[in-house]
Nucleic acid binder design. Structure first.
Length: 581
DNA sequence: GCCGTTTTCGGCCCGACTGTTTTCAGTCG
């Protein structure tokens, strides 16, 4: 299997980890980490480019040396330099640096003094009070190490955005009620709408920061206070979610919001522009010498580095700064652009709302159209319909649809892609459908090659209009099946199969980078909720957020168009459908 | 190791908090 960009990035990150542990130059370490970021977020396969004999495009943070190393990795599958480092530094130490509070310097120090290489050995050393004996460390650090090891045992992973939103809402209300507070804004990866967040960062503007810090620390759901200062407090809530609150004055709001929204890489990039222009950006404002030249709004702050305001979802240092500089920022899609939903189930299969309830919920959202897409027979766990029952259901959908003037109800199906790549409905029923959504629901364990050729075969089928669940993942539950996504994206562009950006907050089958790569490959999209209840139609927002992170614009998303344009943009169903029967 | 409106060397984003030591290093975001 060819080397992926992620493989290259992983090697560079490992080099950075080991260089850092061996006490290497910190800027050199940073260069490897930056290169890893750059490679991982590049949308085309570097291996493909090199193997086909083309020039590697100029990537930020990659110079002659690292370009050569990318070539070495692609050609040999490994990097000699990494092997060398691995023979010099115990690789187990990398794991230790992942403990909060322990960085490369302390891990190295503990290793040099005590020979500690593993978490178990570290725990033993801490329990026998050997850590505190090391000069530079102490009793507190030793206790913190033990606490972190304990915490690891009940590992807290990143939480899904939807869960962070639910946890943050009451806390935001609580903080708004604190005396002197004027604004409460959730920033961080939450504001950038990442699919999962590590913690929740809340920015508060107020007259007296100390009052806010005290009130926050006293919030009833706080389980543990990790740090508490005059301007910044970090706690863990009873749910395990970490929350940071940062207080600034009203006049610093914009600068603080930019700083606190991140990403870190985006901030570093704009501060570097600042350095070139001899101005300093921090969370309090923008400064030329001692003089403060901006800070109240985000627009003001960006203007000082000659940039327009940038949508939070784009702030990942993945090309948005160049795009902003050259006036080429994408005009990313908005929730209000969405005109209908193209993937929904009802009580006829595994949904929990009736057909009429779903239609009325879609109307109340102002939709122009809604596709009802019941499962087909192979998906027995979801009570998938066998052809006869499907035909009956389609008649019911048509009849119900006629009762409503304000919306068009499309007869659809979520057609199972069978193990051999064929579709789980006979042609005479495929022909009756207005819209055909195809997806894999079983045999997740095929090899990457097998899974890819199975799905490609389905996409070559002229009836396949939309590919749903391109990865089958469930966030924090399962990673999805092995599949060659770039090949799927190319096929989508070639055959005119729209890719579904699944909006279920626990699914979001295609991630931000996938969406962007697919767009660059020339694919079109639909954003669909895959609703099983009227309340899930609201999940459209999560799909739109993910699409925005993938740089999708209105014109890329077919269900942001009128019904007429949507139907004419979907792949044409075969005319003489049954001719080769 | 990268990079250049201080351009082939000498910089490399910036500040808060903790714990340690007593002025600062380490870690984090």
């Amino acid at each position: 299997m060819a080397i992926t960009n992620n493989d290259i990035a992983a090697i560079f990150n490992r080099v950075a980890d080991l260089l850092e542990l061996s006490g290497g130059n910190e800027f050199r370490v940073r260069a490897y980490r930056g290169a890893a970021m750059s490679v991982a977020s590049f949308s085309q396969s570097l291996a493909d480019i090199i193997i086909s004999g083309q020039e590697i495009p100029k990537l930020a943070g990659i110079g002659k040396d690292l370009e050569g190393k990318i070539g070495e990795i692609v050609k040999t599958g490994k990097l000699a330099q990494l092997k060398e480092l691995e023979s010099q530094v115990p690789t187990e130490l990398i794991e230790l640096t992942h403990l909060p509070g322990l960085g490369a310097k302390r891990v190295r120090l503990i290793y040099d003094k005590l020979g500690v290489k593993t978490i178990d050995a570290l725990e033993k050393a801490a329990r026998s009070e050997k850590i505190r004996a090391i000069r530079g460390l102490g009793e507190k650090t030793e206790k913190n190490i033990l606490a972190e090891i304990e915490k690891r045992k009940g590992l807290q992973q990143n939480v899904r955005l939807i869960d962070a939103i639910k946890a943050a809402a009451p806390l935001v209300e609580y903080l708004k009620a604190v005396n002197g507070v004027t604004q409460v804004t959730v920033a961080g990866s939450y504001r950038r709408r990442k699919e999962t967040v590590r913690d929740v960062d809340i920015l508060v503007t107020c007259s007296k920061a100390k009052t806010v810090m005290d009130a926050f620390a006293a919030y009833p759901l706080v389980k543990q206070i990790l740090a508490k200062g005059l301007k910044k407090t970090t706690v863990v809530l009873a749910s395990g979610l970490q929350v940071d609150v940062r207080a600034v004055s009203e006049s610093s709001y914009g600068a603080a919001l930019v700083y606190f929204t991140g990403s870190k890489e985006h901030n570093v990039a704009i501060r570097k522009i600042g350095v070139r222009k001899k101005i300093k950006l921090n969370e309090y404002g923008v400064f030329r010498g001692k003089r403060r030249i901006a800070g109240k709004t985000e627009e003001d702050v960006y203007a000082t580095v000659d940039l327009p305001w940038i949508e939070p979802e784009l702030r990942e240092d993945r090309g948005e700064i160049d795009a902003a500089t050259s006036g080429n920022l994408p005009s990313i899609i908005e929730l209000s652009d969405i005109q209908g939903d193209l993937h929904a189930h009802t009580t006829a299969t595994d949904g929990r709302s009736t057909l009429e309830e779903m239609i009325e919920a879609a109307i109340s959202r102002g939709y122009k159209y809604l596709a009802i897409t019941e499962h087909t027979q192979h998906v027995t766990v979801a009570k998938g319909l066998e052809p006869k029952a499907m035909r009956k259901r389609l008649a019911e959908i048509e009849k119900a649809g006629q009762k409503y003037k304000e919306i068009t109800i499309l007869k659809g199906a979520e057609i199972d892609i069978l193990g051999d790549g064929s579709l789980d409905l006979p042609e005479e029923i495929l022909e009756e459908l207005d819209i055909r959504v195809c997806a894999v629901h079983y045999k997740f364990n095929l090899t990457k090659e097998e899974q890819t050729s199975r799905i490609l075969k389905a996409m070559e089928n002229p009836w396949c209009q939309i590919l749903a669940h391109a990865t089958g993942r469930q966030i924090n539950i399962r990673s999805g099946y092995e599949v060659d996504l770039p090949a799927i994206f190319r096929a989508a562009a070639q055959h005119g199969v729209a890719l579904e950006c699944n909006a279920q907050p626990a699914r979001l089958d295609l991630n931000d980078l996938n969406l962007r790569a697919a767009k660059e490959a020339g694919a079109k999209f639909v954003i669909s909720t895959d609703s099983h209840h009227t309340s899930e139609l609201e999940f459209m927002q999560y799909g739109v957020w993910q699409a925005r992170r993938g740089w999708l614009e209105k014109r890329d998303v077919l269900n942001s168009q009128s019904l007429k344009v949507l139907l004419s943009s979907l792949r044409k169903a075969p005319q003489a459908a049954l001719s080769h029967k």
